[in-house]
């Protein structure tokens, strides 16, 4: 437990104090600020139209502004998180500090889990920045908090899956570049796997179930489903386990 914490804490500090994190955070903030403000203004415009007598109840801020914000954040995460996680193991190998980890009295599992938590921590920090936008909106508009939190729970779990995938990619190679590209491809694969599901085949429901998107949508709609939670946690476990196998394999390769 202590070894996991030691590694996680050291790597989280390294991730959060690295200029890369600030560049990524800064660029994301620019993008979020621009799109969030635009969709908020658009929403205000349309609400005014619907406010005329005799019209239906207007558009819902949850479904328009916040959902769009969360979808954008998720899209960004697909690309940005592999860049954060790329260093976790590839850098250790490149700088030969891997030798220190492998000759310390710790197990491959502790290394993999510690590294995962460090990456997840950084992802949660980034998600935290994006959460500021909907929270700030609450200063002027009141809307139910429930769906917002279920959406963020989902986002944190999905981000965990991206981090685990990125960590696995990082374990496979000594090259940081390759680690980013691999992580990216794995992430995109997980997101778009349902595209190949087709319709009416015997494998359609299986493939659809494997897609991250299907599960994430549930969380955004405000439904914390047990099967989605279990699916995402298993996905995280699977990739952390695969990472552990790769780390362990350096002992006998």
């Amino acid at each position: 437990m202590r070894a996991i914490f030691t590694i996680a804490w050291k790597d989280l500090k390294a991730l959060l104090t690295n200029p890369l994190f600030y560049v990524i955070g800064g660029m994301c903030t620019v993008l979020w600020s621009y799109t969030y403000m635009r969709s908020l203004l658009e929403f205000a415009e349309r609400s005014r139209m619907f406010a005329q007598p005799g019209m239906d109840s207007g558009p819902n801020i949850q479904n328009t502004v916040i959902m769009a914000h969360i979808s954008l954040t998720n899209l960004l995460f697909i690309f940005v998180l592999p860049a954060l996680t790329m260093r976790l193991l590839a850098e250790e190998k490149r700088m030969r500090t891997y030798d220190l980890l492998l000759t310390s009295p710790i197990t491959a599992t502790q290394i993999a889990v510690g590294k995962f938590f460090a990456g997840w921590g950084a992802a949660v920090a980034l998600a935290g920045i994006s959460l500021l936008y909907p929270l700030a909106t609450r200063l002027v508009v009141s809307y139910p908090m429930g769906p917002l939190f279920s959406a963020y729970l989902g986002m944190i779990l999905v981000a965990g899956a991206y981090v685990a995938v990125g960590l696995f990619a990082s374990a496979l190679t000594e090259s940081i570049m390759l680690s980013v590209v691999l992580g990216l491809i794995f992430n995109i694969l997980l997101w778009f796997i349902s595209q190949g599901a087709g319709e009416g085949h015997f494998y359609t429901p299986v493939v659809e179930y494997l897609s991250l998107g299907q599960h994430f949508v549930g969380f955004i709609m405000g439904a914390v489903k047990l099967n989605s939670t279990v699916f995402l946690l298993s996905l995280i476990t699977l990739f952390v386990f695969l990472t552990q196998r790769v780390v362990e394999s350096s002992r006998w390769r």
Binding site: A14, M95, R96, Y98, D99, L100, T103, S104, P105, I106
Partner: peptide, 20 residues
């Protein structure tokens, strides 16, 4: 391996230091 590693201090050819 854990018991053995506990008793050994190892300096590899390249010192395993984190530059940051």
């Amino acid at each position: 391996p854990i018991e053995v590693k506990r008793r050994i201090g190892y300096l590899p050819e390249t010192p395993p230091v984190y530059h940051d």
